[in-house]
Amino acid sequence: MTQLALVIDLNVCVGCHACVTSCKEWNTSGAAGPMVDQNPYGKDPTGTFFNRVQTFEVGEFPNTETVHFPKSCLHCEDPPCVPVCPTGASYKRKEDGIVLVDYDKCIGCKYCSWACPYGMREFDEAQKVMKKCTLCVDRLYDPQMTEEERRPACVRACPTSARLYGDIHDPESAVSHAIREAGGYQLMPEWGASPANHYLPRRKTTLRLRHDEIERADNPLKVDGLLPKPGKSEPSLDDVTTW
């Protein structure tokens, strides 16, 4: 079974909000209707967004790190927001695991937003229905787009490639590799919602050089380092001279 998801690399996210704006740009222009803003140029602008980037400071001065944290619906594998919906407007797609809201069925009771522990759903004050990230479901299968374009808008916009997209149930996919090899984790595991989106932790950036990268392992004479090094000014040629 397919479970499409995002894997977000906190190690490379620079907090530029490109995913926020590209998400809004794509999704406010779609067939599902605009993501309406209130007071966009006034004192307290507010509006519907599917994606937010937040910033946290970890540690104590002077040993602090700034962590930028993109936040959108995690398309939980066992989504607590779905069974509570009284109308069936909220549902999880069998074929690809995307959690969606049917805006034509939603009565705007907001119960699902109470049932999402992450606060990933936002009520649209103009359309009076509940909204949330669709994983750009209207891009993913569009035959008029190229393969490259059939990805969520935020993934394409990210200038640092902090956002990976793919099927986390396919063990050979790039996202599965990233989760396995870079220590991908889920948010708030204590509630058992099993979010499909994963985050990759911050990593210490170190230069890793193995011994055989310094001394050539393919030296046919296997004598690297045994013979005296030629002087700096002397000519040298691989496999002809010793160095």
């Binding site: 307290d44 507010t46 946290f56 970890v58 700034t66 009520f123 985050y199 932790p201």
Partner: peptide, 30 residues
């Protein structure tokens, strides 16, 4: 749930610097 589990960083001292917007949202009102 704590900030540690919310963003998955196991450091005892985490503070939020910005929630990503200034004018409020559904999440800050509801």
């Amino acid at each position: 749930s704590t900030l540690q589990t919310a963003i998955g960083i196991k450091h005892p001292k985490i503070v939020q610097k910005t929630q990503g917007f200034m004018g409020g949202s559904f999440n800050t009102r509801e």
